[in-house]
């Protein structure tokens, strides 16, 4: 962190499973949700983040610290984001996209969404249903009708293999 005059303000964030995290205000306000709380003067004590668990929040804070330490250079920020997300599995990415949405962090939201899309792109319908916890509630007739309606997209697609 660049040394500012005076001591940098630190915020305390609390996850929904009651873990506490200290983070520099300058990094935390990448979240518009947190920035609004700070501007409204609600950040005096502990900031409760009811929709984010400790494991995910720790990861988000690592990202906040990492990205805010990079000066205004979009290329470097992009390569940091790519590296940060490269080893994350699907469940972690899903938790992060929900956290980024709740915290209103557009740069993280975009990066994680793009990563999830990249993972989905090569997968079968069966894989996507499993990973997203989707129950196929079409009747066979409806499913056939949807396929017919979208046959321009379904050529050559296997619907129930596992890759």
């Amino acid at each position: 962190m660049a040394a500012e005059t005076g001591t940098p303000t630190t915020l305390t964030l609390k996850s929904n499973d009651d873990e506490l995290f200290s983070v520099a205000e300058s990094a935390a306000i990448l979240s518009v949700t947190i920035r609004n709380m700070v501007e409204d003067g609600c950040a005096g004590g502990v900031i409760p983040l009811d929709n984010v668990d400790g494991k995910t929040l720790a990861s988000v804070i690592t990202y906040m610290n990492g990205i805010s330490a990079i000066p205004a250079d979009e290329e470097k920020k992009k390569s940091y984001r790519d590296k940060f997300l490269s080893d994350k599995d699907f469940e972690t990415l899903a938790d992060m996209v929900l956290a980024a949405n709740y915290l209103n962090m557009s740069c993280l939201m975009d990066a994680v969404s793009a990563k999830i899309a990249q993972v989905m792109e090569k997968k079968s319908v069966g894989w996507v249903r499993r990973k997203f916890g989707i129950e196929n509630d079409y009747t066979p007739e409806e499913e056939a009708a949807v396929k017919e309606e979208h046959k321009w997209t379904f050529e050559g697609v296997e619907t129930d293999d596992d890759n």
Binding site: M120, E121, V125, V128, R129, F132, I134, E135, N136, D137, Y138, E142, E143, V146, K147, E149, H150, W152, T153, F154, V157, T159
Partner: peptide, 12 residues
């Protein structure tokens, strides 16, 4: 065209 394929996943 890939995102349109997700229409097959479920009614939602």
């Amino acid at each position: 065209t890939i995102s349109a394929k997700t229409s097959i996943l479920s009614r939602r």
